[in-house]
């Protein structure tokens, strides 16, 4: 399944809310990288990634998100992944990247 991306800026919480649906892989990670670059150029803010419908992530997706986190940190902002499925959480855990990313349930 291809990756679908929806985003909106929440004025109330002053953050970008990005919902991912499908598979974040070597083919779709470029599209997400471009979308995140566009919205952060429009407004630099924290990014909340809703991953409840993200069915798959691979090392290229992880690597792309690490790049975004580094970019956000230079501006004092953060990226938080909420409600990841077990298979997605497992990949963060086995790579040790759960120590780099903030993952949480909401």
């Amino acid at each position: 399944m291809a990756l679908k991306i929806r985003h909106l800026y929440s004025e109330r919480s002053e953050r970008w809310e990005v919902k991912l649906m499908g598979e974040l892989d070597i083919d779709s990670s470029t599209a997400l990288k471009e979308r995140l670059s566009e919205i952060l150029e429009e407004k630099t803010a924290d990014v909340i990634v809703n991953a409840e419908d993200l069915e798959y992530i691979d090392s290229t997706g992880l690597g792309m998100l690490i790049g975004v986190i580094k970019q956000l940190k230079t501006n004092g902002k953060e990226l938080i992944i909420v409600n990841p499925q077990d298979s997605v959480s497992k990949l963060f855990r086995i790579t040790g990247l759960d120590k780099v990313f903030t993952l949480r349930e909401e």
């Binding site: 691979d58 090392s59 690597g63 990949l91 086995i94 790579t95 040790g96 120590k99 780099v100």
Partner: peptide, 20 residues
């Protein structure tokens, strides 16, 4: 091994295969 705090993008895929 992969250092998650200093990830260069190299070797992560093979590390994941070996683990799974």
């Amino acid at each position: 091994v992969i250092d998650p705090h200093d990830y260069s993008g190299s070797g992560l895929g093979l590390f994941i295969i070996e683990t799974l």
